[in-house]
Structures are given as C-alpha cells and as structure tokens.
Design a protein around this nucleic acid. Structure first.
Length: 503
RNA sequence: GCCCUCAUCGUCUAGUGGACCAGGACGCGGCCCUUUCAAGGCCUAAACACGGGUUCGAAUCCCGUUGGGGGCACCA
C-alpha cells in the first residue's frame, strides 16, 4: 500500500509551489490506489502563524483533494491558537493511518525516540550555547574551514537528562550515504561533508529531522515526496532511519516553481495562495491541470494537455517528473481554465459563476434568475477565460439598461434616418415572430430583412445588438434575444427607436 | 566559500546513440470563417547554453566552462 503525505508547517499562506508538491504527492498515492494524508509540522513555536493550519485544510478542500488522514477537530482546537475548521476530518483519519496529525501533539513520541537513539549510541546530548556555536563557526570560517563538531563534543556523557540540553544525531564521519531518488536519480553524499543535526531542541520540541522521520515511519509513509530544498538533508534523514534500523521509504524531491523572471516564486510574482487564484476566477480543475504540467508530462508519445483530475490520477507517475525547475506562466493557465470552463455542465458552471456575478453586482437570488443564468451559460462559456469574465457578458440580461446614446444606434457606414428605418423594420420582424425562443428562425427572418433593406449583416445586427444590450460586445445576438424574451427585447428596441427619433 | 542539483523553441515539455534538417501545447504573427467578442480551421516564425571528447553516428554518453536552482540553524 502506497502512503504519501504532505507535511507543511503552519507558518503562513500555503504557497502555490508547495501546493504543486502536495499535488504530486497526492497523485502518486492515488495513482497506486494508496492513501494520502496531511500532517501539520508545528514544531517551531516562534514561526507559527495563527490561522495557517485552517487555511491549509481549506486549500485542499477547495482543490477537491480528499484526505485519508489529517488533523481532526480536537487536534485543531488545541493548537497554539484554535485552528478548528468545519471541513476537518471528524476523527483525524478515514483509512487507518495512525495520528495525531499535529506534531505538537506528538512531543512524547519524539522524546522517546531521541532517548532510544542515545541508548543505541547514535545520538548524544549537548549543551553548548548558541553564542558559543556561532563563535566556533565564525572561527572556522575565518580559517576557511568547514565547521564540524569536535569529537569531544560528540562523545560527552556528562549531561544529565534533566538538565537543559539538545540531542544531536551522531553522523558517520566517513563513507558515503547513497540512495536512489525517484526524480533526481542516484544520489551520493560524502559523509565527511555532513555534520550532526539537532534532533531535540532545548525547549523539548523535536526538529524537522527527527519529527518528520519518526512520523513518516510510524505513519507508514512509503514515498516521501517533498520540495527540492530537502535534498541536501536527505542523507541525514537516511542516517536516522538507519540508526533506528527502519526500512527506508522512497524519496522524491520535486524541483521548485520559478517566477517569470526565473527567480523563485515570491510575492512580487503575483498570486501566491490558491485563494488568490480562486478569487481571480480560476477553477480548481484548471489549477491542478496546470500545476501538474509544471514538471510532469505523460510522455511516451502522449501529447495530451488538458486533463481531468481522474485522467491525471490515472496517468501520473513520479518517475516522469522532471528534475529541473519550471517557470510559472499565466498564459497557459488561462487557456487551461478556458478549456475546463467549457467542460462544465451548464448548471455546474452557473453555480460557480454565481458568487462572481453577485460580487460584481448581479444577484442571482431567485430560482428564475438562476434558470436564466443556466440558459445563458452556453452563450458565454466559450468567451470566458475566467469566471470573472462572465459578468460583462451577462449583466444586461438581469437589469434594466439605460437607453443607448444616438451614436451607438447608428449602424456602421450608415445615416441616422436609415438606421432608424432599419430598426423599425427589425422591430416589425421581431414582433411578428411566432416563436421567440427559436433563435434560428429569428436569425433567418432578420437576415431576410437585411437583404431586403440591402444592408450588410454587420450593419443591421450592430444596430440591433446595441439597442438590445447597450453594449458593443455581447454573446451571440439571436440567442441573447431569445433569452431576453419578446417583451424585454421589444421594449428596448422601442426605447432605442424613440431615442433615434429624438436625435 | 563548500556541498548538491539542473540546462531542448519566449514558456511548459516530448525525446533514454541512428526513425530528429528535433515533435506537441500555450503564447506570438498571418490567412480563412464570422452579426460584435470569442471560438474553430489552416499556415508561419521560434530551441538542443558553450567548448572539448567517446562513437561510423550524439539533443541523447563522458569531461570542463558558463549560467540557473537548492542547501550548509536549537527553521521547516
């Protein structure tokens, strides 16, 4: 059984690059029919940011990523600040992965394991002050040497368990640590280049190195999928596993996501959190599709670009993840968003559009209005790249429009009186229509009128469009009038005729 | 400074020694279609970072250079 995890620290908004790492981790598990869970790594009390845990859970909710394990209400409520979130799992797990999933709830476990390592001779207690260590490091640097803990520091046994101290891993000083990374390939590290990491801090909290390894082992993680920045500490982690005599998981270090300038993604590159993408009108399906393509491609002659989430799960594999950093570019995201918008069923799209329309000032607050929206959806889905684009196309269906100014009602290369005449004739045709819902019939009739008046389609239709919508850019005219209905359409045409007569 | 790592069109990528004068997608430009805006169809431009090897033959293997990214904490 494949088990993967995403283990962020609640130190702020989940970065879009981190989301991609999480996505790969999740896809890896789901592709194998495995499990995926979230663990909150809140072992650094100083960096903790209130509300971050909640936001992380919310992020996965919005993305539609279901967890097989994660912090539950009880755990969330007892975090440094109450992080409870309605969408959290009831019991912390749905698939028998052992919790708790918040590291501050597992302090005893880490302590116990640190002691075990001391017993085994793979770790030791130390109590140099950070000032002392800083000084030693500076001295080493001054002599252009790499700082290493001295042997006498690594062999102390005089520190009592009850006095303040840290526990450090005693790394091997010779030989190499090797492993095969799923994305980076064969890795070799000279142990001589590595120093002893702190496992347990003076405050009793474990560091990442200890906590994450102990948890991954205890929780049965088979594939450690994490960001590139962990690559160089992997040999330390492998030594921890070895010290315990545990079977090694597979490691996969996924490369960073870069901004358009080739630098690591940061605030000045625009959107950071998925919430910003959500608010900008992106679909979770599109974001996931886009993120998946950042570093992964199906390959083997498969040139598909647009993937549903299920297709991604089916085709994804970690060993096809590239090992070089990828640049985040909005153009393709926008295109994918467009593609995914079109794939949605009308009702589904209408529901997703609703909050954006309401925010833009068009309330969809009655069943009638919603039904109208659903009717409209086919007319706008090809035109909207983002959910925020729809409002401009559809607002004139939901509210009264001011009578357009005279200039707008004069057709291209036409005179006022001719435009007026054309509009009157159009009104006659429209009012004579037996079935106003039949946009094809409507089109036929109006085209016939255009021929009769010796007007180009553009000329006639521009006048009608502007009169009926008050806009120069709209969804297809005939479908629009059909949705607008006979009454409203004719009223607007009449108002336009009156305006032209006045002018 | 030291360690690790990466390098194909502007961007995401396919490519695992001959099938590659390098394929796809986005974007760009053009044409067609067209009631506006889109969409769609067709077409064009656009890349193997550089220098050395190895080999009959290299985008693919090796070495170096350059450039990018990451790491070197009682942070994760």
């Amino acid at each position: 059984m494949v088990i993967t995890r995403f283990a962020p620290s609640p130190t702020g908004m989940l970065h879009i690059g981190a989301v991609r790492t999480a996505l790969f981790s999740w896809l890896c598990a789901k592709n194998q029919g495995g499990k995926f869970f979230i663990r909150l790594e809140d072992t650094d009390q100083d960096r903790y940011v209130e509300g971050a845990g909640k936001q992380i859970l919310q992020t996965f909710d919005w993305l539609g990523i279901k967890l097989d394990g994660g912090p539950d209400h009880a755990e969330l409520q007892t975090m440094k600040s109450n992080e409870d979130y309605p969408g959290a799992l009831e019991s912390g797990k749905v698939n028998s992965i052992a919790g708790p999933f918040v590291q501050s709830h597992r302090l005893d476990i880490y302590k116990e394991h640190a002691e075990k390592l001391i017993e085994l001779g793979h770790a030791y207690r130390a109590n140099e002050s950070s000032e002392e260590l800083t000084q030693l490091r500076q001295q080493a640097e001054a002599r252009k040497m790499d700082f290493r803990f001295k042997e006498e520091m690594r062999l102390r046994t005089d520190i009592k368990p009850d006095e303040p101290h840290v526990v450090r891993l005693r790394m091997p000083r010779t030989g190499q640590t090797r492993y095969k990374d799923i994305v980076k390939g064969d890795m070799t590290f000279e142990n001589a280049n590595l120093d002893d990491p702190v496992l347990l801090k003076t405050d009793g909290f474990a560091t990442y190195h200890l906590a994450a390894m102990v948890d991954d082992h205890l929780m049965g993680v088979t594939h450690v999928v994490r960001a590139d920045e962990w690559l160089s500490s992997t040999p330390k982690h492998i030594q921890i596993y070895k010290a315990f005599g545990w079977e090694l998981p597979q490691f996969a270090h996924v490369p960073n996501v870069l901004g358009a300038d080739g630098k690591k993604l940061s605030k000045r590159h625009g959107a950071q959190s998925v919430f910003e993408f959500r608010d900008a009108g992106y679909l979770p399906e599109a974001l996931i599709n886009f993120l998946a393509l950042l570093g992964w491609a199906p390959g083997q002659g498969d040139e598909q670009n647009v993937f549903s989430i299920d297709e991604l799960i089916q085709k994804f594999s970690l060993d096809r993840v590239g090992s070089s950093p990828a640049v985040f570019e909005y153009a393709k995201l926008d295109w994918l968003n467009d593609m995914h918008i079109r794939r949605l069923e009308p009702e589904d799209l209408a529901n997703r559009l609703r909050p954006f329309l309401e925010q833009a000032g068009t309330a969809i607050d009655t069943p009638e209005r919603f039904a109208k929206l659903v009717q409209l959806v086919p007319l706008v889905k090809e035109r909207a790249k983002k959910l925020t684009d729809a409002h401009d196309y559809i607002n004139f269906f939901f509210k009264d429009i001011p009578v357009p100014p005279v200039e707008m009602l004069i057709g291209p290369k036409m005179e006022l009186h001719l435009s007026l005449h054309a509009l009157r004739e159009a009104r006659n045709v429209l009012s004579g229509l037996s079935d106003f819902n039949d946009d094809k019939g409507m089109e036929q009739a109006l085209r016939a009128l255009g021929d009769e008046l010796k007007l180009k389609p553009t000329q006639l239709f521009t006048i009608i469009r502007n009169a009926v919508s008050g806009k120069t850019v709209t969804p297809p005219l005939f479908g629009s009038m059909a949705v607008l209905g006979r009454e409203v359409t004719l009223a607007r045409v009449d108002a336009a005729i009156a305006r032209l007569m006045g002018g």
